[in-house]
């Protein structure tokens, strides 16, 4: 059972932050083609670090699993080797990988630049809301024509 702690979570240590930055850069790199920053963009990374509250413990476990021994930390590896290690981590520990994916996506996809790039208005849903088409109600004619399908049991 997971029970969230009410006490403030301790911040990530400097080595943990460095590893996380490396992971999120590998996960969502910047793209000139789509005009978006990577998840390691300073503004987005700061948002991630401020938002990990309920996932602090699991995130720390994930980062420790990625780093392994101190002399072979992820950030110290050449880029191709980083990608290989992360691919192996995702296969070996999908639940922990999901924690990092979640904390990253929650912040990356609310960044102004990213929202604009994927065609969203840069605003919350309320108070303006959205338009949704009514749809073609005549599509229900075959359903009506088929008639009653429930059992009458009183």
């Amino acid at each position: 059972m997971t029970t969230a702690e009410n006490d403030p979570s301790p911040p990530l240590s400097a080595p943990e932050r460095e590893t996380l930055e490396c992971v999120v850069r590998n996960m969502i790199p910047a793209s000139a083609e789509y005009g978006v920053p990577g998840a390691d963009d300073p503004r987005i990374l700061a948002d991630i670090l401020q938002s990990i509250d309920r996932d602090r413990e699991a995130l720390g476990k994930a980062l420790r699993a990625i780093d392994g021994s101190a002399d072979r930390r992820l950030a110290n590896l050449p880029e191709p080797e980083q990608a290989r290690r992360l691919a192996a981590f995702r296969v070996a520990s999908p639940d922990l990988a999901a924690v990092i994916e979640s904390v990253t996506a929650r912040c990356y996809y609310r960044d102004d630049r990213v929202m604009a790039s994927i065609g969203m208005e840069v605003r919350p849903p309320f108070p303006h809301g959205y338009e949704v088409e009514q749809g073609d109600w005549s599509l229900l004619e075959p359903v009506r024509a088929r008639g009653r399908i429930y059992r009458d049991a009183g």
């Binding site: 999908p94 999901a98 994916e101 979640s102 996506a105 929650r106 996809y109 609310r110 990213v114 994927i118």
Partner: peptide, 10 residues
């Protein structure tokens, strides 16, 4: 977008 990304990766 957040759920799309989380589910898509999972």
């Amino acid at each position: 977008p957040v759920r799309t990304a989380i589910n898509g990766m999972a």
